[in-house]
């Protein structure tokens, strides 16, 4: 027993399937009648959406549907949420702009989701996505971390004056300042912590299937925590009642934080609990 117990470098049980190409990642799933989604994304970092014309795309070969933020809102699907509250120095909660899964009215970064095309093949979805006409009103972009909150910067979200989400002080400032006053030596440093792209080798993926008989949605996702995905999609996004939503994280090709859905706030309130 001990040879495979605690402290032993047991060779991994999962390796055989990965080494023989039998792993089952989300994109490996294929079901009868499957369609393919492709997202129309903003090429602009900051712009108003004056109009979206989906007619030509909807009429293109193989297209099943072209859906926008208005369709999402009409179906009562809630916006994406942020999980944790941080109280700002003015005593207010952090500023949280509404984040619709498909943009409404405005796009705020290059790659922001504007519409989705669903077609019989991926190539057809991509072909049709090129036919979605979006009229953008381009606004100046804010990109620099250090100066984003400066007075002369373009305002991104109405709810966040000076582009500030929060200012969060922590610690006894007076005591610390006093210690600095009487210190023998003070060393200081300015630094940048560079932005990284997490890059698990498996790109994110999602495969959804709806059973109209049981009214159940089964969603395969590249997720690090399927239950929490389900909870949030149910409680906050009103996608489906929790018992009618099945979330599966099959083999997932690396996460490193980028495939998480984390801690959430106010679930209790949302569920009507104290």
């Amino acid at each position: 027993m001990a040879e495979n117990g605690v402290g032993a470098s047991v060779r991994r049980k999962e390796d055989y399937r990965f080494l023989t190409g039998k792993g089952s990642y989300t994109d490996d799933l294929n079901v009868v009648g499957q369609t393919h989604a492709y997202f129309v994304r903003s090429p602009h970092a900051h712009a108003t959406i004056n109009s979206i014309d989906t007619a030509a795309a909807a009429a293109a070969d193989g297209v099943v549907a072209v859906l926008t933020g208005d369709d999402l809102a009409a179906d009562g699907i809630g916006p994406l949420i942020c999980g944790v509250n941080v109280t700002s120095d003015d005593g207010e909660p952090h500023r949280a702009p509404v984040h619709s899964a498909l943009a409404q009215g405005k796009v705020n970064y290059v790659g922001d989701h504007v519409a989705v095309v669903i077609a019989e093949t991926l190539a057809e979805a991509k072909d049709a996505a090129e036919k979605v006409e979006v009229d953008y009103g381009i606004l100046p972009a804010v990109t620099d971390t250090a100066t984003a909150a400066d007075d002369d910067q373009q305002q991104i979200h109405e709810v966040a004056p000076n582009n500030q989400c929060y200012n969060w002080p922590f610690g006894d400032k007076a005591a610390v300042d006093a210690a600095f006053e009487s210190a023998h030596k003070v060393s200081s440093l300015d630094l940048v912590n560079n932005r990284m792209v997490t890059n698990p080798m498996e790109p994110r993926a999602a495969a959804g299937e709806y059973n109209s008989g049981t009214e159940e949605i089964t969603l395969h996702l590249t997720t690090q925590n399927p239950h929490v995905h389900r909870l949030v999609m149910s409680a906050f996004n009103q996608l489906a009642p929790e018992h009618k939503l099945r979330v599966v994280g099959p083999d997932v090709g690396g996460g490193f934080g980028v495939k998480i859905f984390r801690v959430l706030r106010r679930v209790g309130c949302r569920l009507g609990l104290p």
Binding site: R11, D15, P200, M201, G253
Partner: peptide
Amino acid sequence: HGLQCGFCT
């Protein structure tokens, strides 16, 4: 142990 998530493997 030349693999972990198995995707690049």
